[in-house]
Design a protein around this nucleic acid. Sequence first.
RNA 1: GGAGAGGUGGCCGAGCGGCUUAAGGCAACGGUUUGCUAAACCGUCGUAGGGGCUCUACCUCUACCGGGGGUUCAAAUCCCCCCCUCUCCGCCA
Length: 429
Amino acid sequence: MLDIKLIRSNPDLVRSALAKRGDDPAKVDRLMALDGEFRQLQQQLDNLRQERNDRSKQIGAIKTERAMGDVVALQEVVAEIAKQIKALEQQVSTIESERKNPRTGLLFQIPNIPDESVPLGLAESANVEIRRWGTLPSNGFIWLPHEEIGANLGILDMNRAAKLAGTRFVVLKGIGARLERALGNFMLDLHVANGYTEVLPPAIANEETLTANGNLPKFQDQLFKLEGLPYYLIPTAEVPLTNLYREEILEADKLPLYLTAYTPCFRSEAGAAGKDTKGMIRVHQFGKVELVKIVHPDNSFAELEAMVEDAERVLQALELPYRVMLLATGDLGFNSAKTYDLEVWFPSQGKYREISSCSNCTDFQARRGQTRFRENSTLRFPHTLNGSGVAIGRTLAAILENGQRADGTIKLPAALWPYLGGLREIRKE
RNA sequence: GGAGAGGUGGCCGAGCGGCUUAAGGCAACGGUUUGCUAAACCGUCGUAGGGGCUCUACCUCUACCGGGGGUUCAAAUCCCCCCCUCUCCGCCA
């Protein structure tokens, strides 16, 4: 959520931010009209309430001091004012919900303002490659897709997963299941060693939490909701982690906060029909280690660079070739002012695929969740950052694909050996 | 799930229809005192949204005592619904 005062004082800035994203700049004008109306009615309402309060006090004074005065007449006057107040309150609350209600309000439909350093462009081709790491595996080899490798080795079973739950689920078995667990432990250990605090949050979140994070109301169709209950399965640990200090005032010396969590993530993948239908690239449930930072506003962009490096460390240790992309304005998420994606190499597809997305949401989420910190006795919103560190399902798939050898065995990166009881390769059991 | 007790500012805690502008304390901040620290004393000290203006100041209004609704001229205070915490009981990985 943007600051309404910023929109009032600098509507052009917000209009151009919307245009850069391919969003509708007229939203600003609709909001400003509504805001003007709101303020005018609020003023009227406040005046009426003042009058009511004054006269009610008068009545109280007359009664307690047994002073002279026509109490009955006054009561009638105030009763009339009270009626007007009620009517006006109705109007104000209608407008307020169009303006600022978390579920329906216009203010909540305006995305974050892209940072100056974000490349302009609506097409995916406008994204800028920042750097590459690792050498791509050679050609002259038929690189199998991970789902075939997994099936051959007997460690990945899509068919039985479909029986148990449906399409877009996986069952991992034997070393496959163990590998998932090893990856989670490895990533958490790495991030904890780098200063992050490990958190184990609920995998279910309520409406307030998802609204503060920006998933509701706009992206409700991407979530799994528990039937008849105001609960949702989390789509990422970003949701609970950025909400950990919601509606709290932190002391400035508590910042920065570095948090990491390994949770299951649940996504309905509505609208993704036909995309990545095979394998574990796009599934309804996957494990992910998430990184979240809550930082002082002055440092957030430097903190973003550091966070990207923290995610890169995972891929480097796992010896997976990747590239870092800076997303253009049109590709930015709703909350984000600047986002880097990490894309890992999938030899069977001959392309890089997203495995991590690291964003600086500036004060956008903090304002929405009323997370604040106190600095020299004034209250400020911290900046929140989130990044995958990294998605485990896709990592597992990438390890299977990139580690393929001619004899059908899979090479495991040395960083994982200690997590797999010394196992150095996967072979058919 | 059942019974009971409770939820008040950063924290503790009083208030239970009008004298609350939420007492008092702690913490914090500023000052006096002091060789320094501490103590003592004085002062400041919630959040949000408006309006005014000589516009980082200052003045002023409104709202907020877990959330929502209601009663009343007037609600932290009375009534209803919901949420959360604690204690006991039941069930349970």
